[in-house]
Amino acid sequence: MTSLSRLARPLMASKASVATAALMLWLVLAVWAQLPAPLRDWLALPCWLILLGFCWRSMNEQALLRRRVWLDQYLQPDAPFHRWLRGGILLRLFNLVVAVLLSGYLLVKMLSLTPSTWYLLLASAVTFTLCLSVFERGLRPYIQPSRLAPLTRRLALLTTAGVLILSYCVIVIYTPQPLLIARELTEALALHRPPLADNASLLMMADQLVRGSELFGWWALQNSLGSTSSGGTLSLIGWAVLLLSGAAFLWTWCHIMQGIASGLERAKV
């Protein structure tokens, strides 16, 4: 029975391993974000590569699964189009570009996270593992065995991302922001962002940019409240910047956890 099921479907990685790996990554990142500047700059690249690897893997898996299901729906399995459209170097390259951007953003954003968001990420690792476990058990009777593992991961990703983003919204709403009402944007930026040193690294510049965008969101949000002149557009932009930037960051984190699960399955841990 065991050997038969092993032949029939790819092995699911152990939930404990997934949780352990996600926690390890969280720890590494949390420690990295607290390091002093020169060390942190040097270690940024390996961290980025790890994140990039998991993110890319997850995105590829999702994209290939979607493509494959769509092709199976309409094409004969041995049709040449089936082979051509299955997804090759082009799709992977595109995903690589997206993954580079997203994981880079995640890494930089890690530098300006509030403690509550760190705890949120920690909790999300647990949530993701729980989702994997629950969904796998619940879906097993209904899903084709070859699709069970990726589909479970996909569902776990969507659920975890949904919960995460909702919690993040609540945190954003409840976290006090620096008061920027009646200030010029440049003034607000100058006051609430530590000035960039002359020999600042690329990482520091990116961090500056991310903090600036967050400040811009706050500024737009606060200065459009009750204003009749801006017609609400500024307020909308403010909310969009705040929530979309957070959502992009959390979405990437969920992809990375899925990448971990997928990678562990590949390594048959």
Partner: peptide
């Protein structure tokens, strides 16, 4: 070869959780 939840893995997970919580406290402090 399917990954089983062994006592060793559970212990590792436990230690990691503990370390994470510790780090969280240190972070907050």
């Amino acid at each position: 070869m399917k990954g089983k939840i062994t006592p060793l893995k559970m212990r590792l997970l436990g230690w990691l959780l503990l370390a994470a919580l510790l780090l969280a406290v240190v972070l907050a402090a």
